[in-house]
């Protein structure tokens, strides 16, 4: 694997290679000394063109635990709006002899664009509504921790599917590993054509949640209401909120996940988010291990 641009088309063995490697790093995170010298001498730039707290911190921590040298670049909005093209920005950074670029951007396809136009190794930390591969990998790692196997699992992903890179990456990765994926959300927030993803569409929340091993709630963005996709948060919760009552009635044993940050009592009730069923904080911890694994495996190609 030269880059990690998304999970579409990534073969099963490569996904398992990351998940298996992450397992070792996850064990490391429980030790008193959490640092290894694996990426000593490797220079990584975290290129965040979009606001992010947890993903950026998770990557930073992963890079520090691997002893890489890192630089943070944060800028919201298009580089064009500042009078500089994205390519110029990247060439400037590349001139500083960077080995690996971790990039987040609001534009779909930015990581692929960088991979095509630079010599650096590119890791996608989220591009528009397209893909967020490390989030899906940490979700799969967390599922594997609980269930042992991904194959045969039924994963319900609920909410704003249309604008969710998390949903897309999870669908690609989970399908490759043999899980069944079911999407559910308000019709205005569902893509029109999901034939490529090969997922099932549930007509209502009950059908999505019943029989699912995993229920993943997605974050509802406030701007969706302003853009006319949603009537109100109240109505969203009434139709698609993961509440205690619904879980008790339909699926008391499902594992509950959320990519964070959670809008409590809108897409996910506090009572559920803070319950034994929820693995939200495990996802955060596992995220560091999974990102360490992805960085480690990608950087393995440096100098070869």
């Amino acid at each position: 694997m030269k880059h990690l641009l998304g999970l579409q088309g990534v073969p099963e063995e490569e996904i398992y290679a990351i998940l298996d490697t992450a397992k070792s790093f996850r064990e490391l995170l429980d030790r008193p000394v959490k640092k290894v010298p694996s990426l000593r001498g490797t220079t990584i730039v975290n290129l965040f063109f979009e606001n992010s707290t947890r993903t950026r911190i998770s990557f930073e921590l992963a890079e520090k635990r691997l002893s890489a040298d890192l630089i943070n670049f944060t800028s919201s909005g298009s580089s064009i709006s500042k009078g500089e093209t994205l390519l110029d920005t990247v060439h400037n950074i590349e001139s500083m002899k960077i080995d690996l670029v971790v990039v987040r951007h609001s534009g779909a396809g930015v990581p692929a664009f960088l991979a095509k136009n630079t010599h650096a190794i590119v890791l996608n930390a989220g591009d528009g509504a397209h893909e967020h591969p490390t989030q899906a990998l940490l979700d799969m790692f967390t599922m594997r921790q609980r269930f042992g196997e991904i194959k045969g699992l039924r994963v319900a992903i609920v909410g704003d599917i249309r604008f969710s890179r998390v949903a897309r990456s999870n669908a690609w990765g989970l399908k490759t590993l043999g899980a069944d994926v079911v999407f559910c959300g308000p019709p205005t927030l569902m893509p029109g054509d999901m034939s490529d993803l090969g997922v099932e569409i549930a007509p209502n929340l009950e059908q999505a949640v019943r029989g699912a091993d995993v229920v993943m709630a997605l974050r509802v963005q406030r701007e969706r209401q302003n853009d006319g996709y949603l009537a109100s948060e109240r109505e969203y919760r009434a139709c698609y909120g993961i509440t205690r009552e619904r879980l008790d009635a339909w699926n008391p044993s499902a594992m509950v996940m959320h990519p964070g940050p959670v809008n409590r009592n809108i897409e996910l009730d506090s009572e559920v988010a803070d319950s034994e069923q929820s693995v939200i904080l495990d996802q955060v911890t596992n995220g560091v291990a999974v990102r360490m694994a992805a960085l480690y495996l990608l950087a393995g190609g440096i100098g070869k």
């Binding site: 579409q8 779909a108 396809g109 528009g128 509504a129 397209h130 249309r162 604008f163 969710s164 890179r165 897309r168 893509p191 029109g192 054509d193 999901m194 034939s195 490529d196």
Partner: peptide, 13 residues
């Protein structure tokens, strides 16, 4: 265009 490629990338078709 609205369709599977727009949905693949999450773009407004």
């Amino acid at each position: 265009p609205a369709g599977h490629v727009a949905d693949l990338y999450g773009l407004p078709g």
